[in-house]
Design a protein around this nucleic acid. Structure first.
Ligand code: FES
Ligand code: FES
Lengths: 141, 141
DNA sequence: TGAATACTTGACTAAATTACTCAGGTATAT
DNA sequence: ATATACCTGAGTAATTTAGTCAAGTATTCA
């Protein structure tokens, strides 16, 4: 049960972006250098974040990305969903009547895993980017 | 962020075992057939469960496994820990001072992931095998 | 205008992990 | 004796992850 780099990097990069939340766009190159994340990988990630309207892009010299919404409105759930990081606790198909290993009904543990999934998703729904900025006690806002 | 088969199967198999919680041991062959899990894979899993004193084994004809404790005392956390399914939300070393990507300090998202890890582990601490047997109605204390 | 910057896109690949299988063995009941 | 069923370690195919690589396009500024 672990978080992928893609998901972690997406949040990390957006936290960086939120921290430098000035009028000026922030280039991926800067984020790459500050956070030690591969530029090419960041590009993949931001392409998805843009498609999900979490960031806006500005091309050309002095271009970069800026947040498309107020940090408080960007939930962790939105970010992770954008980069296809999904919480998956069961093997069986969600909408199918079949259970694990193609059995004809849902198994005895199915409800448990559903509960777990909800439990985790609740966390992602509660937390937003703003929480990440103000939590650092860096005294900046 | 997903649960591995090993972890899911371990819980599934123990739930099966708890359901047939008679005086007689339950063979892995039976569990394999009932739950559709590979026998060889089950043997790997039960070897670990036994090493962690979650089950007891009885060899020979009519042998099998029985629970080593009352189902209410077997927490999900114990089971998952036994089969090496660990919750891992960060990349950085837990006890090191270094952060992600070998940076000199913990990154801005570190606390968030720690919180998430605690949030998930809390779930695993709360739930036990008994919850899985007497389930059906959401009798959460 | 032209060079530099920085976003855009898709394909590709090495490394790691997962989910097993396989090939032996040992203990016990009948 | 034989069948049953636990026990152990090594090996391996399939999948996923974590990127890289290559070839663009748009914008700014000197
Ligand atoms: S987890 Fe859904 S049927 Fe087993
Ligand atoms: S998650 Fe621990 S330093 Fe980034």
């Amino acid at each position: 049960m672990k978080l992928t780099s893609k998901g972690r990097y997406a949040v990390m990069a957006l936290a960086d972006l939120a921290n430098f939340n000035s009028v000026n766009p922030v280039s991926l190159r800067d984020i790459s250098l500050r956070q030690g994340i591969s530029l090419d990988f960041l590009e993949q990630i931001f392409s998805k974040l843009k498609r999900h309207n979490i960031v806006k892009s500005i091309r050309g010299t002095n271009g970069g990305y800026i947040l498309n919404k107020d940090p408080v409105q960007i939930k962790l759930a939105n970010i992770l969903n954008a980069v296809d990081e999904e919480v998956k606790t069961v093997q069986c198909k969600k909408d199918s009547k079949k259970g694990c290993n193609n059995k004809t009904s849902k198994c005895i543990t199915h409800n448990l895993w559903d509960e777990l999934e909800m439990h985790i998703n609740y966390f992602f729904e509660q937390k937003n980017l703003k929480d990440l900025i103000t939590n650092t006690s860096e005294g900046r806002n």
